[in-house]
Amino acid sequence: MVRFKNRWLLLELLSGNEHGIPELSGKQVFDALRQSVITHFGDVGWGSVGASMSVKYFSPTTNLCIIRVARDPYRVAWGATTLLTSIEGHPVIPNVVHVSGTIKHAQLAAIEHNRLIVARFRAKAKTPAAYQDSYEQYLEKSTAEIDALQD
């Protein structure tokens, strides 16, 4: 029996303007990625990644997303993410942070990147390092959600 081999893309969506990104859902991100694949790679591109591509995790707080796609056509999905310009009419700048062959490494990279983003939020707010805020609860919750992901 041959197992299905995947690639895992850790994607961060940055705001394309000063207004920020409105709260999105994983379905909206998936629909935008699907449209990007169809626009830039046509029906053949969508046929190669369509059956295997899925958004396994999306955080509206940090706009961090984990995408699963088959190993062979993962470059089509990667290309479509980098060519993504807007979601629901709001400009975005996609940043592929990490590409992994296993979900475990994608989880570890996502947890580390979430901590980095929260540190950026705290630095922007100029809070001391030992300050207890709602981000502490968010980090605990998001770490549990990411750890619970299954292949």
Rank of each mutant, 00 (worst) to 15 (best):
I103H: 00
I93N: 12
H90C: 11
V92E: 00
H90R: 05
V118M: 10
Q132T: 03
P73V: 13
K104L: 08
R120M: 13
S142Q: 13
K126N: 13
V97R: 10
L139Q: 01
R115P: 01
N95K: 14
A109N: 06
G79F: 09
Q107G: 04
A106T: 02
A129Q: 12
W78F: 15
T82G: 06
R115S: 05
E145M: 08
E136L: 13
I93F: 08
A123Q: 14
F121H: 11
H98N: 03
D72P: 09
R75F: 14
A80G: 07
R75E: 15
R71C: 09
R75D: 14
K104N: 08
S134E: 13
G89V: 04
V97Y: 02
E145K: 13
Q132R: 07
I87N: 07
A119T: 10
A130E: 15
Q132A: 04
G101C: 00
P73T: 12
A77N: 03
T85E: 13
K104F: 02
H105G: 05
A119I: 00
K141S: 06
P94Y: 07
V118H: 08
A77Q: 04
K141L: 07
T143A: 03
Q132H: 06
N114P: 01
N114E: 15
A125Q: 08
I103W: 00
D72Y: 14
E145W: 00
V76P: 12
R122C: 05
V76D: 11
R115F: 08
R75W: 14
R122I: 02
R75G: 14
I111S: 03
V118R: 08
P128Q: 09
L84I: 02
H98K: 06
D147W: 06
V96Q: 02
T102I: 00
Q107K: 15
S86I: 00
A119E: 14
A144K: 13
A148I: 07
E112S: 15
V96I: 15
R120L: 12
K104G: 06
Q107H: 07
A110C: 06
K104T: 11
A130G: 04
H105W: 00
Y135S: 09
V76K: 15
T127P: 01
H90G: 00
A144R: 11
K104E: 14
Q137V: 05
W78K: 15
D133H: 11
A110E: 05
Q137A: 15
S142T: 13
V99S: 04
R120I: 09
N95M: 09
R71I: 08
D72F: 14
A123S: 15
V76W: 14
A123M: 11
E88H: 07
T82W: 04
S142E: 15
A80S: 11
P73R: 10
P73Y: 04
Q132D: 09
T82E: 10
Y131S: 03
Q137T: 11
Q132I: 08
T102H: 02
L83R: 12
Q132L: 08
D147H: 10
Y131Q: 08
D147E: 14
N114G: 00
I93M: 09
Q137G: 12
V97C: 05
H90A: 08
H105A: 04
Y74C: 13
A119L: 10
P94D: 05
E112A: 15
Y135C: 05
H105N: 09
Y74L: 09
A80W: 12
A80F: 12
V97Q: 08
A144P: 01
E140M: 04
L83N: 09
